[in-house]
Amino acid sequence: MKSSTNQPVSNAPQDLGAKDPVVPVWLIVVCFLLLYWGAVYFDERGGWFSTQVYTPYVSTEQLNTIAAMQGPPDPRVLGAQVYGRTCIACHQGNAMGTPGTFPPLAGSDWVNEKEAGRMIRIVLHGFGGPGLVVKGQPFSTASVMTAFGSPPLVGLTDEEIAAVITYVRGNTEWGNHAAPVTPEQVKAIRDKTSSHSQSYTPAEIMTVNPAD
């Protein structure tokens, strides 16, 4: 028999002139069935592209339910998060601030006052101006602390302010050992000082009674 191995392989039109069989119907049906199964599977288990849903959980609603089941989170967590988002830029991660520009929060008597009235006002309405001395070091007049009391831009809610102040006041690693602060206290002071639109100056804040 003549060897077929040395013939040129033609892809010439006579090859293709014959009717080309179509894809078998059953294969198309299988393909669609599997696509349907795939769609259902992804709907059930895919978490709909959420970054937080991992197998075996199915949705962020389920994760929220579970989170709620564990009771309210440790307020220090919220405080640390707020600090890490907001305060860390100036006061630094170790709460030592920058000499001359941003005062430290670690071991500062401004932080460790028995009543937190001054601290709450500072966070709500901002702070800056001449004559600031913290732990014996003077700080410049040029830098002004933003007012964090008013949402939506840089503003924090009462819970967040209370959490971050509690976190800073109670952080023993930083040498602070003052009592925590509740959101109600923050709200009371916010209402009391609602008409105070300028940031506090050191001179002005010294006239405030912390227990107020």
Partner: peptide, 9 residues
């Protein structure tokens, strides 16, 4: 991140 639910770390 400080997203540890139990510890502020």
């Amino acid at each position: 991140e400080t997203n540890s639910v139990m510890k502020a770390e």
